[in-house]
């Protein structure tokens, strides 16, 4: 019950704060429109099909990218756990590439890959693959040694040990990496759209801002927030499926 109540309360509070600023008229209404105006702007963008198109472009890129990148990252983490020399190489590459923002490679990538899906695939993979990879490698290396002994007493070989002990024990940490990667996948897509300026929510945000269509900018920001929440909720569902025990355990301990 409270689980539902709190987001509703937050939304209500946000709306109240917003409306208070509007009524207090500290900012000209032109720059800070009332909620009704923002909703209207959003509705008209939906009526024109603009909103759905942008959401679809950005959403499909970010969601497909996040799924692919998380699977590849975890796969690489598993491979690197089995092959220490691969791990040393990948760790080095990760350390080099992690500080590079997605935006930095976009102009060059446009030049090499064009404006299609390949561009987004490249940018998302380059910057997003490392959190699930690093989380997988570090979590698999940190299995509680007592649990490993329990597995050996049960007669587990390396594969059974991985499947029954190390992977389940690593799941909470791996999924924390997945959650982080999923948020940066969306960021990377939006930034790329802003820089390439062809389509998607990132592009539309700037287009509307330069045209000073402020209610539409706010409506788009709200839509991005919804997309972000939807992706976050999907990760939470996966988390409950694979590491629900960890949530329950923490809930009790706290």
């Amino acid at each position: 019950m409270t689980a539902l109540l709190r987001p509703v309360l937050a939304l209500g509070l946000l709306a109240a704060l917003w409306q208070a600023v509007v009524w207090a008229a500290v900012v000209p209404e032109r720059y800070f429109p009332p909620i009704a105006t923002v909703v209207q702007a959003g509705m008209s963008m939906i009526a024109r099909g603009q909103m759905q198109q942008a959401l679809f472009d950005t959403g499909s890129r970010a969601i497909l990218g996040a799924i692919a990148v998380n699977l590849i990252g975890i796969g690489l983490g598993l491979a690197a756990t089995g092959a220490p020399s691969l791990r040393r190489i990948l760790d080095t590459v990760a350390a080099i590439l992690q500080p590079v923002p997605p935006a930095a490679v976009v102009p060059m990538a446009v030049f090499a890959l064009g404006l299609g899906w390949k561009l987004y695939a490249f940018v998302v993979v380059l910057v997003t693959i490392w959190p699930p990879y690093l989380a997988t490698v570090s979590a698999l290396a940190a299995t509680n040694p007592v649990l490993l002994s329990v597995g050996r007493m049960a007669g587990f070989g390396p594969v059974a040990m991985l499947w029954h002990i190390r992977l389940p024990a690593a799941m909470p940490e791996i999924l924390a990496g997945v959650r982080y990667a999923t948020t940066i996948a969306l960021i990377a897509v939006i930034v790329s759209e802003m820089i390439t300026g062809r389509d998607g929510i990132g592009f539309l945000l700037f287009q509307k801002a330069f045209a000073i269509r402020i209610p539409e900018v706010f409506a788009l920001m709200f839509a991005v927030g919804l997309l972000g929440s939807a992706m976050g909720l999907a990760v939470s569902a996966v988390y409950r499926g694979f590491a629900g025990w960890h949530l329950a355990q923490r809930g009790r301990a706290a």
Partner: peptide, 12 residues
């Protein structure tokens, strides 16, 4: 709720 809004989306 705010955390679901990616930082670059606030730039405009």
């Amino acid at each position: 709720m705010l955390a679901t809004l990616p930082p670059p989306a606030t730039v405009p």
